[in-house]
Structure formats: C-alpha cells, structure tokens
Design a protein around this nucleic acid. Sequence first.
DNA 1: ATAATAAAACTAACATCGTTAGTTTTACTT
DNA 2: AAGTAAAACTAACGATGTTAGTTTTATTAT
Lengths: 193, 193
Amino acid sequence: MARQGLTRAYIIQTAIDMIESEGLHSFSLRELACRLHIKAASLYNHIQSSDELYTEIGYYAISELKKVQLSAIAGKERSEAVEALSDAYYRFGKERPEIYKVILSLPMVKNDAIHKAGFDIVEPIMTVLSGYRLTEEQKMHLQRVFRSIMHGFILQEEAGCFRQYSVDVEESYRMAVRGFILLLENSEKEAEI
Amino acid sequence: MARQGLTRAYIIQTAIDMIESEGLHSFSLRELACRLHIKAASLYNHIQSSDELYTEIGYYAISELKKVQLSAIAGKERSEAVEALSDAYYRFGKERPEIYKVILSLPMVKNDAIHKAGFDIVEPIMTVLSGYRLTEEQKMHLQRVFRSIMHGFILQEEAGCFRQYSVDVEESYRMAVRGFILLLENSEKEAEI
DNA sequence: ATAATAAAACTAACATCGTTAGTTTTACTT
DNA sequence: AAGTAAAACTAACGATGTTAGTTTTATTAT
C-alpha cells in the first residue's frame, strides 16, 4: 500500500472520533487500522501499545475537560463560579460520555505523566475555591469532595442508576451542588475562628 | 473426566473468590474452568454466558453491600445513622474493591432483575433518610446525592486520584459526609415551611 | 541521476479470549 | 440391565492485542 502521510496525532484523533461516535466498547485497534486503510500491525509503527493510545486519548479528554471548566468559570466568583463549573463538568460527562470513560480507565497510579495530567482537572476547581477564605488543607479536602460529587453523579446517571424514580435528575444534581456550597460557606466560618 | 458435583452456586462462588484475590482484570472463563478442573466449554453446561455470570456476581455484591449497610445503621438515627452508613459503604469499597467494581459493570438499564437489585442499594439509604422530616421527593433527590458522594469518592480514591496531595483521605471523606448532613438539615428546614 | 537508508507499509503467525457444535462419558431411573 | 439426560470432552471459529520478519516507499547523500 502506498505510504500516506499518517501522523501520530491524526491516528489519535481518528481513534477519538471512533470512540465518540461508536462507543468505547466497540473500539479496537483492528477497526482503527481499517478506518485508516492500514493493517493492524502497521499501527505499531506509530504507537507502542494500545495502552499508550488510551493514555494519549486520556490526555486529550483531560485537556478538553479542563478547557470547558476554565471557560465556564471565567469572570465568575464564589457560588456563581461553583455552579458554573459544576454545570460545565456535568454537561461534559453527559455530552461526551465515551470520552469521559477513557479518563476513568487511566491508571493514575503508575504513569507519572498521567499523574501530572490529573492536576489539570484539579486546577480549575482550586481556582474556584481560592475565592473562599479557606486554609490550604481545607481546599485540598473540599476539592476532593467537589470532584467526588460531580464524578459520582455522572457515573451513576450514565449507569442508569437514576432511572428507578421519575424525579428530575438535574434537580438532584443542583441539590448536590447546593449542598457543596453550604459546606464551603460553613468551612469558611470555621476557618475564621 | 469423572463427573463431580459441580453446583452453579459453587461455580459462582469460585469466580467471586478468584476475582477478589486476583482481580477482575485477570479473571477469565478459562481460568475459572481450570480452577474447577474443567475445560472452558464445559462451563456452558452451568451458565449461559459470561454476562450471566457477571450478573450473578453482581447480585452477590449488591446483597453483601446491603447487608453491611443494614447492620451499620441498626439502632441508629439521623446523623449518627448517616455517618455509620457512609462509613460502612466506604469500608466495603476499600476492602473489597474488585467485587465493588463488578457492581459498576452491571448494565442497570437493560436487565430488569438488576434494575430491581438496585433497590437493594437504595433501601438502606432511604431508611436513614426517613429519620428526617422530608418530603418523598426530597428523599429521592437526597438519596441520589448521598450515593453520588460515596460512590464518587471511592472510585477516585481507588483510581489513585487522591495521591497527589498528602492530605488525609479519610478526613476528606468525613468532610464530604458532614456536608451531606448539613444539606439534610437544611432541607429539613425548607420542608417545614 | 543513482545509491543508500530509514520509515512505514505488508504478510504471517501466536496466544488469549468468549463461544458453539458435535461427541463421549457418567450417573441415575426405569 | 437398558435407557436417558446431564455433564464432561474435543475441535473449532472469529475476534482481540501483539511480535517477527519482509517488502515497499520516500527521502537523503553521493
């Protein structure tokens, strides 16, 4: 087959497109190769392993998520920023569920680069929390709490756990965020003492 | 090979043992068969598919989780019960991470039986919330919020997302639960109006 | 222009996975 | 003792990720 100007970046982007349109489950290196008009083995001239590919896609997903968060909180402060960020996070998880799932599969533990990318997710949250009068330690705790709420909610909704009752799901989410804001304000009072 | 008294229940239990001791990732029907001194194809005399097996394991996991929750809240009320339940849930996720992951992989959407099993997770939480003066709708929302917090936290810790900072992880969790209790009390006030 | 080189494609194959079809053995029932 | 149904077997299929070894292509150096 005639050599084509296949870029590593193009391959990754194609993989992302496939995952977003047809789901993470049905994705495979062979189908990716097919879409690129290449045999599966030829992929290994550009990537080292499927793990490496997923890692690369994970970077992309994290950077996209960060982008969305940052643009959401731009020019906002405190509770308004918290709500904007949570809203953006929720929409990302809902509109791009397959890409969001890739982030989950990242082995945060081992890979140092991914570990570092994790900071990209934390950073916008920390920025928002800086609008509150909190100690550094409080911010660390609260950032974890905030992520847990958003992450847990998205995953459960995606898994279909919320279909049991007909109560509005987005209203539940807003309530969760409101609860976090309550905690924030309460923590602020404690920090003042 | 001589016919042995292989029970469906025994096969499922063996699978659970393998998953708990060696991880969900490295589990396969072939290894399960090997451990049972059987060829992989013979498994199909007892189960219909690997999906069915995972579903069965999911039932087990959910019932275990429910057991733990119920025994934790026995004789407790309100915030004490909330803390006890959250504590039990957390310990379950931490001590039996591989089994907990099986619950995640359950396709809540399709399967009616699993859908029903989902109620088993919800029930203990609803019991605790009944100690608060809330409307039914509020309880639905708050039950989702509570699950999201616990679920999201466990998953992120398991994924290694909390290793970035040296702040105590369990303290973060307690803070998250405390935030939920704040929200509960606040919702109670709103319901009174 | 031609020869050398390195990148990128290829073919072929391996091990593993879930799964199916068809066959043989075992244990229980009549 | 014969018949039957359950439960084991062997053999194979298609799909997966991956490796080794080979050929083609495009670029570089002479």
